[in-house]
Amino acid sequence: MTSILIADDHGIVREGLKRLLEAESDFEVCAEAADGREVLEQVERTHPDVVVLDVTMPRLGGLETLEHLRAAHPDVKVVLLSVHGEPPVVQSAAALGVHGYVLKNGCATEVVSAVRAVTEGGSYFSPSVARQLVEQLRAPRAEIPDPLGALSGREREVLKLIAEGLSAKEIGQQLSISAKTVEAHRTSLMRKLGVRKATELVRVAVRYGVIEV
């Protein structure tokens, strides 16, 4: 029996995924999570075989959660589920070692196919995502834009919270760091993402799927 943790901040999506997956006789949903930090807690508690993880999550984003899971639980298979098919997001996920990437605008059965593929030791990427990865391999490396790939996990967290409108003080309280450290991360983000104004970080975050609008 394959145990699965479903992570999405929308309850109706989790319920739909649970029904879809448990229609398979050898699949069992062992836990659910509504944000990234809850995912990490539930993985520690329930030890699932597979985590189906939404890219856009509160508190700790999908890519950041993926990074934590790959470091602390390398045996757990991770399938990202997302409305985002932008190259930087896909490339960042692939670089972090994701096992599967399914677009929400695809067929529902793709999720089942992805979970089954990664359980059997393979991988699964929605067709358009797979094409992007192939094109990435074919293209000269210097020509591949990957602005998010240069960010650390903490910088991605700060970027997401900035884009959500939190102040430096509020971000510091949420991440248990000082406001001064938040400002340092913001300066680093502006340099790495090539923007001159802090307000432009929001535009970058929306463009590359760090947050939804």
Rank of each mutant, 00 (worst) to 15 (best):
T2Y: 04
S3I: 04
A7E: 11
D9E: 11
H10M: 14
H10Q: 15
G11R: 12
G16S: 06
L20K: 04
L21H: 08
E22W: 06
E22A: 03
D26E: 14
F27T: 12
F27K: 09
V29A: 05
C30H: 03
E32C: 02
G36F: 07
H47D: 13
H47W: 09
P48T: 15
V52Q: 03
L53M: 10
P58K: 07
P58E: 02
G61F: 03
G61A: 04
G62W: 08
G62C: 01
L63Q: 03
E64Q: 12
T65G: 03
H68Q: 10
H73V: 13
V76R: 10
K77E: 13
L80E: 09
S82I: 05
S82V: 04
E86T: 11
P87W: 05
A94L: 12
A94C: 03
L103I: 03
G106E: 13
G106H: 04
E110I: 01
V112L: 05
G122F: 14
F125T: 08
P127R: 09
S128D: 14
Q132F: 01
Q132A: 06
L137P: 01
R138F: 13
A139Q: 13
P140G: 01
R141N: 00
R141G: 12
E143D: 12
P145N: 00
P147N: 01
A150V: 15
L151E: 02
S152P: 05
S152I: 00
E155V: 02
E155N: 05
V158F: 12
L159P: 07
K160R: 15
I162V: 15
E164S: 08
E164N: 05
L166H: 06
L166V: 06
S167R: 06
K169N: 12
E170S: 14
I171R: 05
G172N: 07
Q173T: 07
Q174L: 14
K180Q: 14
A184G: 03
R186M: 13
T187Q: 13
S188C: 00
M190G: 03
M190Q: 14
K197P: 00
A198T: 15
T199M: 02
L201F: 09
A205P: 05
Y208K: 01
G209A: 10
V210L: 04
V210F: 08
V210H: 06
E212M: 07
E212L: 05
E212Q: 11
